[in-house]
Amino acid sequence: MYIWDFSPLWKYRFLFLEGIWVSIALTAAVIVLGLICGLLGAAGQLSRFRILRWLSWLYIEFFRTTPLLVQLVWVYYALPILSGVELSAISAAVLSLSLYGGSFYAEVIRGGIVSIDPGQSEAGLALGLTPSRVMRRIVLPQAFKRMIPPLMNQSILMFKNTSLVSILAVPDILYQAQRATMDTYRPLEVYTAVALIYVAILLPLTALAKFMERRLKEY
């Protein structure tokens, strides 16, 4: 019978705090950059120009359908060989997570925009607003409300996704957990603690997302 003993973990508390900080900072960075990728991807999808639609489709589908782990490894090890640009582990992690997240954000943003009744654009155009004004003043404000809950959910997933960067030796929560495990030989306790850390951070955020979803329901 296994005897659970969490006490050896206490002396690693600063290590964990450091990991938490890295994970949160990484998540914040890839959310911001991912949203930019997503906006560009969605704009490409809705573009009048076929070539832009096609390029954004390629980007979105490529990053949505390949495993994030493969992307991380590929960007870190293969990209430098192909491009000659050496990337630090952190840069490679930020780059691939942003592109990966962006491909999902793009679909959320595009979906939000096309979900707005075409009658809304028509009414705006009929008033004499230019198409870009219609987009900014009529469509986007309505679409944005619908996008917020799925964007929040996707961002919560982003936090979990950052755990994969430990394979590039980026010192996030999971990487620190591996170090603690090697020192203590207490993997069960360590990973239980890690799970609890993720729950503690994400539970309030999912609750917030749910709350926002209800608040933003309709007008």
């Binding site: 009744d117 409300k145 309709e218």
Partner: peptide
């Protein structure tokens, strides 16, 4: 003026 009004709900 449209059949379904198309007022801006926001």
């Amino acid at each position: 003026v449209f059949q379904h009004f198309n007022l801006f709900p926001h």
